[in-house]
Every structure is written in structure tokens, then in C-alpha cells.
Write a protein that binds this DNA or RNA. Structure first.
Lengths: 188, 188
DNA sequence: AACTATAGGGAACGATCGTTCTCAAAGCAA
DNA sequence: TTGCTTTGAGAACGATCGTTCCCTATAGTT
């Protein structure tokens, strides 16, 4: 396994462990065991646990954003593109491993201790807002619609995580449809 | 200070510390210092840190629920009662100490480690859903409306916490108004 | 005043954390 | 083979955690 593979492998495994059980609950010794690398090599690849956490969050952001964009690109018309976000959530919530938004979890766990984690979380959510705002603008809708749709998506993520049920995605999608129809110009 | 006062004082101080900085970040030694009680007395009042955490969450739930109910009771008509939840959020977000929903934070931090915390969080959110469902039913609205309004409220809480700005309450309120008008029978 | 029970204050305990260090094994050049 | 550098494996370190224990001082009773 070359260094790049090892680097990526550590991040993948750490992501799974942190997401399943929380960041503080996973120690470096356990991570070392799961990736099957000497502790020394782990510290050669990353200077600290914090660096691994940041790498995990950055990867999460990239994957999440790319997956969302694909759903949007696959949608035909502006209304469908806006609703695509909730289809993306539905797919996500249906995964066995779903346990809420990793950023929200990390923020709740360490946001008050680590300005870096708080900032990464803020940036992640802000980027989602920007995606929605752009779609709303492209569709000629009321600028207020973007943040409203974002609230539904955020609420669905926490609700699905806490309730353990994926139905929040459909509820959010239905509500979004109503908000869109009320604030987007009817298609000619 | 009699034992009841001490008991309540510990819970109040612990709530403030846990909410500000996270549960795991606050040690018993620091709590002891802040409440100015011997460690021995702290352990005479509560059998463990976990018991304090549970007491803090239970108190949060009671205060939150009572505050929400008061806002609802103060509202005149069914539509206003539904919107009262967002006025309650607006007041809350405006507090300097606001740092998100304590249950969501605790769930993100310890939900995967502690079934008790996960269950308390689930129960807290479920009780909010019940309050909204009742208001919707009393108003003769579509039963789907309750969960939709809850999603907006949950999304507003996380968004306000992460962004550090209270505007999510108004955005949620405006969206709620649209959803209500679409799914509640017009007042005669 | 003498004895007893209680409570304060904090040291001690055992566990665990992130990180560093030791040291032997292994690879490699000569 | 010999000497040298790099690596693997995990022990060690220092800090911190929740919890318990010890010891002293005080208060109450006779």
C-alpha cells in the first residue's frame, strides 16, 4: 500500500469510527488497530488526531457536495432541481449507517472547544445555502425561499437521526413543494 | 442552603457548564468548584455524573415545554398558536447564551454511547411533535402539517446554533405561515 | 471535658487519553 | 559478514477523567 492509499485508508476508517461512535469516543489506539498500521506510521501520516478529524470532515464535505450536485444535475427542471436535495436526503437516511449529519454531530460534541470544527461546520452549511440560493435565483424565485428550504433539510437531518426513521425526508420534500409553489413563478 | 436548594443549584450550574462547553468537557472537579461544594457532598446528592446529566436534561425539557406552552396559551387563534412556536424560538435564539438545542448537542456528543441520552432526546423531540400535532388537529388542519412545522423548528435550531445568527427563527416563521395557509382550513 | 458521629477538603486510585520514546528486527550497501 | 539506517510494535509518559478514601476538625451528646 503506497502512502497515498494509506492516507486515504486512514481517513475512511476514521470517518466510519467517528461517525458511528463519536470523535472523542474513538482513541488513537483503536484507530491504529482498525487501520492495522503502527502508531508511529499513523503519526507519520498525520501530525495529530485533530488533523485526522479535519481530513475526515473535509472529505465528508466533498462527498456530500458532489452527491448533492449529481442529484441536482440529474433533475430536469428548476422545481425538480430544488426537490432533488430531499431525494438526496431520502437516499442518505435509508442507509443503515445513517446517524445524522457528521458536521452537526461534531459541532455538538466539539464546536464549543474547537473553533476550527465550528468554522468547518459553518462553512459546510453555508455552502449548502449557497447551492440552494443559486437554484432559487436561476428559477427566478423569491430569495427568501432558499433559506426556508435549507431549514427543512436541516430539520430533516436531525429529526431522522434522532427518531431513527427516514420519513422526515418525505415530509420535508412535501413541505418544500408547497413552499416552492408559493414562491416560484409558475412555469410557462 | 438546604439539600433541596443544593440539589437544584447543582443542576442549574451543571446545565450552564454542560451547555456552554459540552458534557465531556466539564469534569466533576470543575463542577465542584463552581457549585462550591465538597466532592463528597456532590456524590451524596447524585450517585454519578451521569445522574447529573439526566437531571439537567429532564429540567431542560420541563422548562422548554413550559415556556413553549405559555407562548401557545398566550396566542389567540389556532394559526397564531402554531406560529407561537417560532416566536418562542426567536426569543431563545436572541439569548446570549444560546448554543443550540441541548438535546441535539447531547445526542451528537453521547447519543451513540448512551442509550439513555438517546432515548431522552427522542422523547423530548417526540413531545414537541405531539404538541404541534394537537394544535393542528384542534385547528382541523392536514395531519401532515404537524411534522412539517416541526422540521422547520428543528432546522431553525441547528441553523441558528451553527450560523450564530438568530434570523433562522423568522425564516422558519415565514415558511410556517405559508405551510399553514396551504393546509389549514381558512377561518370562517 | 470526653467521647462519638459527621462532614469538609483534597489526596489517591485506577483507567484512559494523545503523544513520544525505546529498542529490537529487518533491509541494504559495502 | 559487517555496519548503518529505517521500520515495526508497543511500552512509557504525563495529563486528566470519574470516583473513592483518608484524615482532620468540628459539632453534639452526656
Amino acid at each position: 500500500m503506497n502512502p497515498n492509499d494509506e492516507h486515504g485508508h486512514v481517513i475512511e476508517v476514521a470517518d466510519r469510527l467517528f461517525y458511528e461512535r463519536g470523535i472523542q469516543a474513538v482513541g488513537m489506539a483503536e484507530l491504529r488497530r482498525e487501520v492495522d498500521l503502527p502508531l508511529k506510521k499513523l503519526y507519520a501520516l498525520f501530525p495529530s488526531k485533530q488533523a485526522i478529524v479535519f481530513a475526515v470532515l473535509d472529505r465528508r464535505h466533498r462527498i456530500w457536495t458532489a452527491g448533492l450536485q449529481k442529484k441536482i444535475d440529474d433533475a430536469a427542471d428548476p422545481r425538480s432541481k430544488l426537490l432533488a436535495a430531499y431525494d438526496y436526503l431520502a437516499d442518505w437516511f435509508a442507509e443503515d449507517s445513517f446517524r445524522g449529519c457528521a458536521f452537526i454531530n461534531a459541532f455538538g460534541e466539539l464546536g464549543s472547544q474547537s473553533p476550527d470544527i465550528a468554522e468547518r461546520t459553518r462553512a459546510h452549511k453555508e455552502s449548502f445555502q449557497q447551492v440552494l440560493a443559486r437554484l432559487v435565483a436561476d428559477a427566478g424565485g423569491d430569495p427568501a425561499l432558499g433559506p426556508q428550504l435549507a431549514l427543512l433539510a436541516e430539520g430533516a437531518q436531525t429529526t431522522a437521526a434522532i427518531s431513527g426513521s427516514p420519513e422526515a425526508a418525505q415530509q420535508a420534500r412535501q413541505a418544500a413543494g408547497i413552499l416552492i409553489d408559493a414562491q416560484l413563478p409558475a412555469r410557462t
